[in-house]
Amino acid sequence: MATELKEQIINTSLFLFEKHGFHGVSVNQIVKASGTSKGGFYHHFQSKDELLFVIHDYFISYVLTNAEKAIVSSTYPTDKLQKIIKSFVTVFDLYKAHISVFYQESTYLKPKYEETIKQKRQTYRDIIFAVIQEGIDLGEFRPEISVSIIGMSIIGMINWSYKWYKKDGEKSIEEIADMYVDFILQSLLTEKAKQNPEFQSYFLHNRLPTGT
Rank of each mutant, 00 (worst) to 15 (best):
L81Q: 02
Q82D: 10
K83A: 15
I84N: 02
I85D: 07
S87C: 08
F88V: 01
V89T: 03
T90H: 10
F92P: 09
F92Y: 14
F92G: 00
D93E: 14
L94P: 00
L94H: 06
H98E: 07
H98S: 03
S100G: 10
S100F: 08
S100I: 13
V101H: 04
F102M: 04
Q104E: 13
Q104K: 15
Q104D: 14
T107Y: 12
Y108S: 08
Y108P: 05
Y108D: 08
Y108C: 03
Y108N: 11
L109S: 04
K110A: 12
P111Q: 07
Y113P: 01
E114I: 03
I117N: 02
K118H: 13
R121Y: 05
Q122E: 14
T123A: 12
Y124K: 09
I127K: 01
F129M: 05
V131Q: 05
I132T: 04
I136G: 13
D137N: 14
D137R: 08
G139A: 04
E140L: 06
F141A: 10
R142F: 02
I145P: 00
I145K: 07
V147T: 15
I150H: 11
M152L: 13
G156W: 01
W160T: 14
W160H: 12
W160L: 10
W160R: 15
Y162R: 14
Y162K: 09
K163G: 10
W164H: 11
K167M: 11
K167Y: 12
I173T: 01
I173E: 02
E175D: 13
D178R: 09
D178K: 15
D182I: 04
F183H: 13
S187W: 02
S187T: 08
L188I: 02
L189A: 09
T190V: 02
A193F: 00
K194L: 06
P197N: 12
S201P: 01
L208E: 12
P209D: 00
P209R: 00
T210L: 10
